[in-house]
Amino acid sequence: MPTAAGPGPSRRAFLAVLPLAGTGGLLLAGMSGCTTSTGGASTSRVTPADVTAAGAAHTRETALIEAYDSAIDQHPGLAETLRAIRAQHAEHARELVAQGLPEAATATATAAGTPATTGAPAGAGLRSSPAVGTPPPAGSDTPETRATTLSALAELERTTAAAHRTGCLAAGAGLAPLLASLCAAESAHAELVAALGAPGAAG
């Protein structure tokens, strides 16, 4: 199927065979072969509708990247974990670009701290506007602001996961598995970040 283009088949067959013993292994290996080799839609993998959906998903990833950049700046003690998650979002953005997005729409996908080029108000709800002239207590690194930041990141991950899921259910066969993967990753990030911000969690 078109979903398994790229490095898939050999690895998938390998993974499928391993957990099975005896004839069952042969059976599953056979099925896996079918799954990965029936790529009938060898024309374009991604429809125009999917390019649009991938663009929307890319905008969501960019908003997450910006939110993590802001959080990393504000909370050096959390930087190690937050940078690792941010790197995954950058990878998500690259994967979406690989779905056939026009370069212009994605130029800043992996650049650190650059605003989105798209017009959508991505992540607007998360970033607090810096108040001019007053020392912003919200910008300091205290246990309270840390908890607030992590809670906001967790919420953004959750809403992003939900949007990826909705996008996945509407997407064509070429894009749907990627959006499913992103939905799963963001769900895990949400749980992870929320746990980091929970009372008693080690910073």
Binding site: E80, T81, R83, A84, I85, A87, Q88, E91, H92, E95, P177, L178, A180, S181, L182, A184, A185, A188, H189, L192, A195, L196
Partner: peptide
């Protein structure tokens, strides 16, 4: 470590 507990592209 928390930053490595999930693959970037599950599945």
């Amino acid at each position: 470590p928390p930053g490595s507990a999930v693959p970037a592209l599950p599945g």
